[in-house]
Every structure is written in C-alpha cells, then in structure tokens.
Design a protein around this nucleic acid. Sequence first.
RNA 1: GCCCGCGUGGUGGAAUGGUAGACACAGGGGACUUAAAAUCCCUAGCCGCAAGGCGUGCCGGUUCGAGUCCGGCCGCGGGUACCA
Length: 871
Amino acid sequence: MPPYQPAPRSPSRKGASMSRYTAAEIEPKWQKAWEEAGVFTATREGGKPKYYVLEMFPYPSGRIHIGHVRNYTMGDVIARYKLSTGHNVLHPMGFDAFGMPAENAAMANGGHPKDWTYSNIDTMVSQMKPLGFGLDWSRMFATCDPEYYGQQQALFLDFLEKGLVYRKNAVVNWDPVDMTVLANEQVENGRGWRSGAVVERKELTQWFFKISDFSDDLLSALDGLDNWPAKVKTMQANWIGKSRGLQFSWDLTEAHEGFEQIEVYTTRPDTLMGASFVGISPDHPLAKALEAKDPKVAEFCLEARKGGTTEEAIETAEKLGYDTGLTVSHPLDPDWKLPVWIANFILMDYGTGAIFGVPAHDERDNEFATKYGLPITPVFEPVEGDYPAKGAFVPPKPDRVRFTRPVAGAEVMTGNEAIDAAVEFCEGKGIGEGVTKFRLRDWGLSRQRYWGCPIPVVHCPECGVVPEKKENLPVQLPYDEGGKPIDFSVPGNPLDRHPTWRDCACPACGAPAQRETDTMDTFVDSSWYFARFTSPRAETPIDMAEAEYWMNVDQYIGGIEHAILHLLYSRFFARAMNETGHLPQKSREPFDALFTQGMVTHAIYQTEGKGGRPVYHYPEEVELREGKGFLKDGREVEIVPSAKMSKSKNNVVDPVAIIDQYGADTARWFVLSDSPPERDVEWTAAGAEAASKHLARVYRLAAELADAPANEAEDGALLRETHKAIHDVTGGIESFGFNAAIAKLYAFTNTIAKSKAGSAAKAEALKVLAQLMSPMTPHLAEEIWTLLGGEGLIAHADWPVADPALLVEDTVTLPIQVNGKRRGEISVPKDMDKAEVEKLALEVENVKRTLDGAQPKKVIVVPGRIVNVVI
RNA sequence: GCCCGCGUGGUGGAAUGGUAGACACAGGGGACUUAAAAUCCCUAGCCGCAAGGCGUGCCGGUUCGAGUCCGGCCGCGGGUACCA
C-alpha cells in the first residue's frame, strides 16, 4: 500500500500555507506515469548505446529486507543515471527461487514448497513495487518456473554432450538417524540439526561439472577484469590455487593388498630430506583396502569420517592418526624407512589424497608429529636470527634460508629457488615429475532434494545412463504423490520415494526405466540467469541476437559473500555456454564491472533451547536496556553483535514499516546516505526521520520559492556552486560514492537555502538539484521538476553537464605547517609562484612565533596544497 | 585452521601521501509560539582559563609530512565448495 503521511495538525500562522511533501500521494502518481510512458521497458531502439545493470536477484524468503532495499537502490541509481545519459538500459529483476528454505518451511508448517515460494514472490514483488525501482518488470521470472528450468535442463544436456558433465563418487554429510543427506548448514558442531546424531561422511555417485577444465583460463582471465574489486580477484585466484610441485611415489617396503607404491604431491619438494612420515586420507584406496581387512583400521576410519564435510570442520578437528604398520623407503635414501599413517586431516579431493609430513616446516605436520612422537628434522634455518623455539619454521617462499639438509641447489637460496632445484634434481633422477595442480575441484551439482531443477537423465537397466530427449523437456517436478499432497515431514527426497514420477520409458530403447531423482544445486540456477534476462521468453536458453546486443552485464552489483562461489560458477557457465553455442565469444567473461556492496548486519538475539541448541529471537521481541537484551518474560538474551542478516537467525530487519511511515524516497535516500556502499552497515532505524525531514525541506524550497529580483553577483555565485554540485554528484554516482554524493547534495541544498540569488536563478539551481537527486529520490525529483516548469518527465531529461570554466577557483587557502604541524594559513592566487608563497608563509604571525627566530632548514611548497616549513 | 576484508568524535561516517573529523544523527544554547509541534540560527573531538598539548584499534618503520604506504600484533566480519 502507498505510504501515508499525516497532515500538519494546525496550519501555519503566517498565512502562507505550509507546503507538504506527501509521499503517499506523490509516489504512486509518478510510478503510474513511468509505467504509462514505458520508461523502464528495455528496448533496442534508437541506435543508442546499451547499458545492462544487474543486481544479484533475491531468494524469495518471504519479505524484502533492508539489505535488498540497499542493493536495488544502488542498481536503480545507476540505471536511472545511465538512462539520462542517453543509454538503452536493461535493468531486470527475478527470483532465485529453488532451495532448501522452501522445503524446510513445508517440513515445519506443512504446505507445499511451490505454493510457499510463489506466494513469497507475490509478497516481495508487492513490497518492491512501491519503492519505485526503474525495473523492466516484463522480463521477470523465477528459477522455479518450468519455462526457466526446462531451458536449464537443455543446457545440461548440451554440456553433457560436450563432455562438460560427468559422474563420480563424492562424500556427503550423512545423518545416520534420519537416514538423509544434510547440507553443511544443517550440521551443527558435527551433529544433525534435527536428529542430533553425529554426522558421518558417506560416498554417493553424483554429477559434476568439469569446471577444472577451465582452471587456468578462469585464473588468467582475472587479469582482464579491470573493473572488478581486487579483493574478489585475489579470493578467486587463491580459491583456484594454482601450484607447481613434484608428484612422485614412495615405494612400500613390502607390497600390500596389491599396493606397491603411494603417490604423493608436494609443493615443497625441497623439504624432502625432512620427511618424517607418509600420511594418507581415510578415503584413500589403500586405507579402504586396510579397512576391509582390519577391524581396528575400520574403527579408526569410522571415527575419522565423523563430523561434517566442510574444509573448516576437517581443518579444525583434532588431528587423529593411525599407524598402519606399513613402511615406505625414502626415494633419495633407500635405507631410510618411514611409517605410513592414516590421518584425518588429509583430503582425498586434493592432490593424490596422500602426503609426506615435514614437521619442521609445516604447522599441521608439526602438531601431528608432536602428538604421535614422530621425528622432527629441520632441513633449513634462518639466514639471520634464531630457529623458532617451538612449532614449525615456515618462512614465505620468496625468503632466503640456509639449507642444512638440501635436496639440491646452493646452500643459501630462496624457497622458490630451492623448489625449482629440487624438482629439476628429482626429475633428473627419475623420481617423479614436476606438475602444475589446482586446488579448484569439479563442481558437484547433485542434490538429494525435491525443490530444485530435476537432472534430465534416465537410468535404463539396458542402456545405462541416458539423457532425456530435448523434446521431452522440461522434466517437471511432480506436485502430488499418488493423488495426495507430498508429505515433506518425512526425511529424505520425495522424488526418490514417489510412487510414479520415477517411472518412464528409456529415451534410447523404450524399455521401462527410471528417472534420476537428484536435483541440481541452486547455484546452477543463478549461474546463467543474467543471460536469460536478455530474452526471458525465448524457446531456447537464450536468443543469440538479444544476447549479442545486451550482453555483457555492464555493471553487476551484489554482496561480497558471493565473491567466490556464485561468481566463479557464473564465469564457468558463461564459458560452457559459449562452447555449446549459447553465448557469444565476448561473453565468456559475462560481468564487465562488479561492485560488491557491504552487508547490512544486525545483532542476533539468542537464548539456549533444548539440547543446548540456540533459539533465535526477532528484534521486535527484545527490549534493550543498558546494553543488555531482555524478552517480554524477563529472560535475558545473549546478544551476538553485527552478524549477516539471515532468515534462519531471525535478525532480518523489515523495511516495510519505514516505507509505510515515510515513503519510498526516504527509504532510498536513507539506505544510500551515511555508509559507503562497499562497507557493512549495522542497521539502526534512527536517521530515517532525518532523511524524511531533509526531503520535505527540499520540497519546501521549491514549493515556497518567493519572487526575488536578479542579483548578478549572487546569481553568478549560485551558478558556480551549481556546477560544482553537478561535478561532484556525477563523480560520486560514477564511482559508487553514493554517500559522498548525498553529502554534497545536503551541502548544495544548504547553499541554495542561504543564497540571496534571484528567484529565476534559484529555480534553475533547484531544477538541477532535482535532477541530481532524481536517481536516488525519483518521485520527489519529478514533483519538483514539474513544479518549476520542467518539460516532460525528469526521467527523460538529459543529465546536466558541468562547465569546467565554472569549476576553477581563483584563490586557494594554503595551510602552513612547521615540522608537519599546522600553524597557520594564507590565502593566495591559485597560480602564485613558489618563492612568493614561501615568503608569505614565513611572514604569518603564528609561524614566526613558532620558528622563534630559527632558520628554516627547508621549505616545501606543494602548489595549491600545503606549505611545510622544516626546522 | 586457511583465504579476503574492516577498525577514525557520543553515533553513521569524510579525507588523489598534504588543514583529520566534510555531510548528517543524537546533544547543548537561542529565535518564533500562551505552550507545544514544525521550522530557522548558533555550538560542538578530547584535555586545558589560555598559550598549547593529545588524538584515526595497539606496537614499530618509511617520509618534509601517514587515517592513507610497509612490518608485527589485537579485535570484528565474510568465505571455506550441500545456506543463498
């Protein structure tokens, strides 16, 4: 509903009625005008340059939250600005609509994920529309629309044909009580969130995208992403993790179960002489062979597989090891025997699933060796200073160290030199080979869940795994089971136990077969939606002509929390789509510029519930007194400050109340002011009032503009200030300095309010003010524009351009420092020469007093900036 | 654990290596009003009567000059491959 603003309780005594900016009337009026004029409908007409601005689309959690408002307002500022600088703008919106919360809701409250999701989408659209975003709503879709996920299935089939999809085993979190797969989020301290059972790692056959085919490309192409934040590129580069090292084998002293060797990969072959043990993953084939024969090994492996699958859980778990009793001989000294341990911290997914431990130069190996009494043998020491008293000595690779037990090379060299020398030496000796490896793993896309895009393949007893025919797409999710609503309260995947949905004919031979019951990771859905927005109703994944015109995304905006996964997967998808003929070559990198906005955070209020698990309370339920929080029943809550707003933590702030009370423009102005867009902001409702007052003041300045004669000096001064404001605000918008742009708009408003210029000059200044504000507060801007006789819609007006001649100042104020401390200032012509500035600076009373007769050693004059007198 | 950020008045924050605290919020004072609301004006980092001193998480360094660059800490946040 449109917001409501109360009228003043009594009219002003001064006769002239007070002008009110009434958001409730003004905002719907202009929204209707924009819609009727089709201002934000993206078209390819007019031979104008195109601009595609996109904000990461939301998950339909049920209500929009303040983080959405911040995100979409930023995008809207860019969209409206680009529109007024002569672009065809594409600014679409949709919903990332598959995912676990819908199933969780069905589990907790009954109902169906589909109904829950579409109802949430309706609510959120109705909450977003009053905000007046310049979006092309005609392009909207949800990823759970069969029209969308059907095309996604078509992409999957093309990827499959191209060899970009394959099946292999991978581990999942297994809840042994509920007999179901858990998401990492559903594992709390190594236990299932519902059953409380200790989670185990279990292997399943799953589908994978071959993102590793693109490791090198995804890494090296980061260099070309000039308009991406450096931190995101660094994070992605580290994630891809290109490394050079040595891959070689340790010979088992005695062959065991058909194993004669253990292959390892190391990035530090120069430390080979410091090896103390060989470690293998509990999931290593040798460990499995031993496990099958020896109950003690089986017991250890079972223990080692407990806890979640996350890297964090594995890395921070207590280091556990089991001495297999097997030994290997050292490749450089066959008489040197080392023990083979199974260790819980070795990942089967990385390298070869086996390592050799060098406790002197690796913290983790050190901890392990110390715990199990294994030898710790240094191979190098610092060139200067002492060897650390405890723990491992791990200098950065570019640092020079002195080798005491070298593999090859000079006595003193850098780690990098030593690694190169060791690789060369070992290769010469026939011990393994230097290889390049990547940390990046293939993307497992199978999910054992209902509410996702079905994987369009069929399992045939005769033909094996067969792709579904394209003409049979979409493979749709069933709504019911056997005429009854699906029961989501039963753990596990409803598709898997559905009585009829699985049954089908083999697309190849026609024999009775069964559908794949796994669905796709929701990251798949969000990896190509940006491309679909260019032709959302096409009968193929995209329409090439549309993609040629609209791609790439000129400006992508979203949360820093997506720095790695979503953005990396999208970059992969763009490449894969290009190679399967679904995107032009230029779109292999789909996002030309990226801006990562900070998150809106809010404290979490929690109390302890059953079994020690936390219960989260909404901000509305908590009363704050002296820094402590209390529930209505008097219980104190624990306050976790500044956490990401998350539906599961109940710390999401709803902006609807602010919109209702003050209107959309106030909410938009408010989320942009004060905080730099890239920084996290702790939400506080104080300040919305101030934003509202300011907008009302701007409106009054225009509405109550009194007749005044022209005044040459004052009019000229105001004109110069106007052009400075144009310059500063435009620069602020283009550089995402929205808070700085708003500060300038405050200052410019104050300037106009205080100016003694004539009414004609003031009206011109106010019209420019309206234009400069129009991307942020578009409704108010239209109203003022009309009030002051502006032609047409401000949304259609050309952006004002600053006249450089009006921006230059004739005189500047120079601060005078003595030894770096400010002692005075002088006002001088802008281009006064250095010698003269120096002379004037030394005559300043306070400077003379500070010098106290001392002769300056040096005087530094930075023209137009500062003078520093050094004594 | 590992990777990436962030840390400035009572508060949000500003500041191409060049006057730290722009612009705002809350506060204090004043004008208008019978009174209030609304509005307008003034004030304001801390210590100090002042001169001046101290100040950008902590310690050190580079520089004529450091919030900004470098090294080492501390605290907080994000990511960590099945939350999205």
